[in-house]
Design a protein around this nucleic acid. Sequence first.
RNA 1: GGUGGCGUAGCCAAGUGGUAAGGCACGAGUCUGCAAAACUCCUAUUCGUCGGUUCGAUUCCGACCGCCACCUCCA
Length: 485
Amino acid sequence: MGLKIYNSLSRQLEEFSPLTEGHVSMYSCGPTVYDYIHIGNARTALVTDIIRRYLTYKGYTVKLVQNLTDIDDKIIARAQTLGTSSSQLAHTNGEAYFEDTQRLGIQLADVHPKATEHIPEMIDLIQTLIDKGAAYVVDGSVYYRVNSFNEYGKLSRRKPEDLLAGARVEVDERKEDPRDFDMWKAAKPGEPYWDSPWGPGRPGWHIECSSMAMKHLGETIDIHAGGEDLLFPHHENEIAQSELATGKPFARYWVHVAFLKIDGTRMGKSEQNFIFLRDALDKYPAEVIRHFLISAHYRHPLDYSLESLQKSESALRRLKNCLETLKKYEEETPEVTDGNSSTLRDVSDADTTLLSAIETMQSQFTAAMDNDFNTAQGMGTIFTLVSQINRALGSSNGISDQTFAHAYKVLSETCQVLGIYTMDEQDTAGTAEFLNPLLELLLEIRQDARSQKDWDTSDKIRDRLKQLNIEIQDTHEGSTWKFVS
RNA sequence: GGUGGCGUAGCCAAGUGGUAAGGCACGAGUCUGCAAAACUCCUAUUCGUCGGUUCGAUUCCGACCGCCACCUCCA
């Protein structure tokens, strides 16, 4: 309850209520698969993922559909330079897309429709629009007649005059109106094509999303998300096509994600200043990249830099240390409750204080996320609790194990909504199991040396392991080791 | 030219008509044989500039300066 979403259509924060109670239908514009995706693309995919996770956390049943544009001019052009087929290129990059996003911890959508698998639906939709007088055929191509939809421009707030004024657009003489856009493109020689009532060709970009969204989610969907660059013309055209065809609202909440910038300007494929997500993932753990990408509100631009990633890495380490310390209580608590009943009662003042801090965090986190998915603010509430827990952990003034176990449960669940605490662990687990006995032995030898104040041997072991990226830490309870990168 | 947005400490970044969340870095401590790690504490009389409205503005209005984006394929 209480979720507010900024709707680009009304340009206001609106109370969210789905069309069907308890269920949310969501469509997110996916990639055009002519290349790997870059971090900027990942930002939109990640925001979509987090919106979905949060809605699920709030108890909604979410159906998320994200398309793959697997036929388009760029794919054709790229395939030609690479000497491969469009379909092969699209397939390869489509697979790469799933691989990359999953590495980032983005969960698969419920449906990932591909444009090339929905040609009949698109033809139907185009035909409907022709029948309604909203489209016309020229030389085997079909254009949408913008003039036939009098609400055209309602999303981007652009008046016809404005659109024509700047007019850097090449005017296609065959169009009735420069604003008209193609829904079906007649195939040129050598291009891939599908048969249609208007001749061989391929669908335009906008019609893909209209028909795939409606096929999988119905004529009116709750949330439609995408990058802010898609607001015009892509989303405007989707509305024009869909609403004229059905006479119903196409999407109820339009969510637009701001750009990721690099050196102050937009990261974009045409700008040639992008960084592939997979390259970033090779250098930084997924949580770090996630943390960075949601460290600002999704409607504000965010500047990519190595420095920012390093900050995220440090911040996350603080979170993780806290969580890992807490986790021990969670593992031990069941045993404790088995035999000893003493820890079950006697809630001390310190317990109460921490317990209420946990509750405060929960309600503040929810409030932050309810406020148009304010992840930056939500993160703040998490870190506030981390400080409180750390202090409690250090003070050892009679806080029960159960309280800490509870803290672990709540904190980790909250982090999972943002996806910043769940991943990895397993990749090093296998080797750790093998190395464990060996390291134990080394630590034992080192401990013997230390008790005899043989610092040379002790330090030698520590230094040499350090060279192998294994770090030793001496604590009051003995020495521990871990991998460092 | 049209449209939208942004400017908060060294850096990143929330936020509100009533006196500035959080993170990183820095500094000071705790711990330690030393270290590392970890933890604690400290860090903006001030929110681009200048005006206006108000008892009171960083928050509302206006002007100006600077930056970004969309209007063309791009998440």
